[in-house]
Design a protein around this nucleic acid. Structure first.
Lengths: 148, 148
DNA sequence: ACCATTTATATCGTTCACGATACAAATATA
DNA sequence: TATATTTGTATCGTGAACGATATAAATGGT
């Protein structure tokens, strides 16, 4: 009956789920020092690339729904990292902009990606193999994440 | 200043985080038909391999903490998938056992791993490349998940 | 200009994750 | 055999995720 389909060891999803959780945990001590969670750090990455974006653009970039990031953005606003203001041309949009505090955080966390990166590198995950890993993950994301 | 470290596209964790979420979403319609969530399905995978395990063994297998799975197990008990009973030799342990209903579920979800599997397969993720992907993810998990 | 539809965001309820903490049973030590 | 420590599980609080639904602004067709 059980030909191995059900073995946890054979499951791709469980590996992704676990690796994702553990990597987020690796970020935790580095980010909590600045009052940030990992999803909040992702929002900052998006805003550091381009400031003053509507909620929807941030959500699309992170492949999340607005019902996930709206409360998250409110918490970040309460912490003073960003501001939320209705758009002037389109009043439906809520434009999210970095505060000086939110901007200045970028300089303070430059060491974070490197620290996490070096924690992950090992025999099979190297600068040489990472491109192939990225290609596979991007393909999975593209195949499952294409809305419509 | 920004040499690319902060580009979302360069982040391994974001890819794992997104791929994990999307793959869990792919499981959702298939599992909700049986009143299961993905983490609950993981618990069943563990119990189908070996019935009647203490909470701690299940938690260790899934690399989760008991404070995560205790409420999850209670919900599954309320749904009739399993029972929880104090161990006879060690009264601290809570032994989790499948009910007939929990056991019978295994036959009903045989199609689930195949459906999700075929949804993921693409150019770069094939039966040939998956072993290398598993090796890399397992190494990441081993490197980050080794307690002490 | 009117009304239906779409779009952008928010609210609500449920289920994880997880750090911190509590507590009782088992074990080790004095 | 007291008592200190460890072990196994549970409780609490907070912050995501996310399906379902609501609401208001913008848009399109008539």
């Amino acid at each position: 009956m059980d030909d191995g389909r059900f073995r946890l060891d054979n499951q791709l999803c469980f590996r992704l789920y676990t690796a994702s959780r553990l990597l987020t945990q690796a970020y935790h001590p580095l980010l909590s020092e600045y009052g940030l969670t990992y999803p909040q750090y992702l929002v900052l990455l998006v805003l550091w690339e381009k400031d003053a974006q509507p909620v929807n653009d941030i959500a699309k970039r992170l492949l999340l729904e607005t019902n996930t990031i709206t409360p998250l953005l409110k918490r970040m606003e309460a912490e003073g990292f960003l501001t939320r203001a209705r758009g002037t041309t389109d009043a439906r949009q809520m434009i999210v902009s970095l505060t000086p505090q939110g901007k200045s955080l970028q300089k303070k966390v430059t060491h974070v990606p490197e620290k996490v990166g070096s924690a992950v590198l090992c025999e099979s995950v190297t600068p040489e193999t990472i491109p192939a890993l990225f290609t596979m993950l991007d393909d999975v994301i593209r195949r499952l994440g294409d809305k419509q």
